[in-house]
Design a protein around this nucleic acid. Structure first.
Lengths: 194, 194, 194, 194
DNA sequence: GATGAATGAGGATTCATTCAT
DNA sequence: TATGAATGAATCCTCATTCAT
């Protein structure tokens, strides 16, 4: 990665921190510059518009998605294991980088800008689709029930993930995210097994 | 309700609409005044600080909570029915007033202001507590399983509710919220029955 | 005129002064505010966009045009006298308010903004049309020659007016604009008489 | 011309184009660099200050003046022919390089900078002086009337030239500049003949 | 000689809040 | 009680200029 890319990423991280601490409203290009120890104008050399910076944040937020989709697929696990593997990877990641969960909770706020909204919608749908495919595979495989209503399962799981992250944040990271989440996920999957 | 209170509520509604259309960042006291057809200064006669206005929004968002808690309790339903009754009421309400779901998705953003954050936290905890109590009752009653992990159920349910509302918003209200949600909720409760 | 309109006009005058002293590039909303002795933000209460302010300048620049067209027409003068009357009024006005001639020289610069350009084009054409009509009347009346090429006369006259104003400005208002101009105009009209 | 001078001229041309398209306000060193396909910093190697660049533009604008003065003088024409020759050369030039007429219309705007203003004043005066000399010669020669007011003739002619160029620009180059202008010039000269 | 990153001042504009009327 | 003018800080963004490489 060249030095410009490194700087861009560093600025992106700073922005994520700011979002985490002060919310979207708390992100100003000036504050980003101050934290980065660069001049205000310099920010715009890397991100000509503030939106480009926010776009970069969303991009980073979903950076590992495709890798994870891939690695989940190639591991040749039973579908239920695959689901667990997939979700647990997020949990590990979030636990190691709590600030990023602020972006996760911002889905709706970002909708108000067309450009950002489109990007977020894309991330949302991509993740939901992948989850849906995993579950369908598990259903074909027979490890998850295939009753009529079970189409809701992907939404249930993804909502839970987002929901437990919100709880984690509200409670000041006061419990073990991964452990808590994976117990619940296992429980859900068990409940929907045959 | 006196005329001042009516006006305050009317301003609050306008604010909710603005949040719905433009996000928190899109709420300005000027725009609120314009939409209300009052002068800019007048807003401050009802809400001396902008935060007071936002506080009022959160308050309105949770206005019916206690009534609903109450009416859920007194109806003397079986616990599982009570859970469904409780959740369905929200769904009916949201379906009749979609803009309010924007506030629902803002939980995390509002945390960045101490005052607002406290209020939101309170709403979040109160609702979660009530859901927990409903479920515990159902477990005692024997209509819901009481395996070790089942403490997660309240979070699963509340997360799903918030999650399906997000999906509803992202998809432009393109499906029937209540119907979709209640099917899923029933499914979850069934899965966790004995 | 209400107090808001008075203030708007006052700000417009200040802007004209600024244009006169520093050119278009020298007009900043901040400087306008400073000169007016008001806060920076206050400027935007009267002119929400800087362009509105510039629009107001052009409007003021051409404010008396229609009155002058009218008063020129109703005076029932011989056409040649009418032409002189018409032009002399501008000269009197410019001599009493030299700064406004800066706007006169800005025609081309203003073309680069669509909105301003349209307005300027309109002023330009309206004035040229009126001059054309005056000359055609004089030709019908027989006081001005009607040889083939004489269609150029309106452009010659209007160009001279703008040209002598430029000279006046370049030479630091070092000659009597009205006297100089009217001698030349008379000379031109004589030269094109029968 | 050495390679540095070639580059300087090329940058100057680009600047003239920019002035033509966007006005003085639209000229930024960054945009010049972009159009030239060089780095931003490189511009300053050729023109240490932006003003130097604008100076160069004015210089180019008047580059052929002295040659034209010279060639007009040595051709040994009758004075009236000389005037026509002189003016027609400008028209030919402008018609072949319309963008340069943007600079012509900028006389007044450039006055606001001392350095640029001096240079422009110089160009203005030099041209006016030469025109004055041509006319005086024609008067001595007897081909142009020498009545009292005729001192205005140089201003009339130079104003017309600038004025018809403005019209040409305003009307989107929608007529033949040279033909239109020369007809008018001939007409003027005829009108002021004996 | 050329690059491109960095700077800092200044640009327009928005905003919550105050206050005289 | 309601108005709307005024404020001043904060917003994003652009620009000429410098300088190490």
């Amino acid at each position: 990665m060249d030095s410009a890319s490194i700087k861009k990423q560093s600025i992106t991280f700073t922005t994520i921190d700011l979002i985490n601490e002060f919310g979207i409203q708390g992100v100003s290009t000036r504050e980003v510059a101050k934290r980065q120890g660069i001049s205000h104008g310099a920010v715009f050399q890397y991100f000509p518009k503030k939106n480009d910076l926010l776009l970069s944040v969303i991009e980073y937020f979903s950076l590992f998605d495709h890798d994870l989709f891939h690695s989940t697929r190639i591991r040749n696990m039973k579908s239920k294991e695959a689901i667990i593997y997939y979700i647990e990877n997020y949990m590990i990641y979030y636990e190691s980088y709590p600030a990023i969960t602020a972006v996760y909770q911002m889905y709706d706020v970002l909708q108000n800008d067309t450009e950002l909204g489109d990007k977020v919608k894309n991330v949302y749908n991509t993740r939901l689709d992948f989850m849906t495919k995993l579950i369908e595979a598990a259903q074909k495989e027979g490890s998850i029930r295939n009753t009529e209503g079970c189409t809701a399962l992907p939404v249930i799981l993804t909502s839970y993930i987002r929901g437990i992250c919100l709880k984690w944040r509200i409670e000041g990271y006061g419990f073990q995210l991964r452990k808590t989440a994976m117990q619940a996920i296992n429980m859900i999957l068990d409940a929907f097994s045959l």
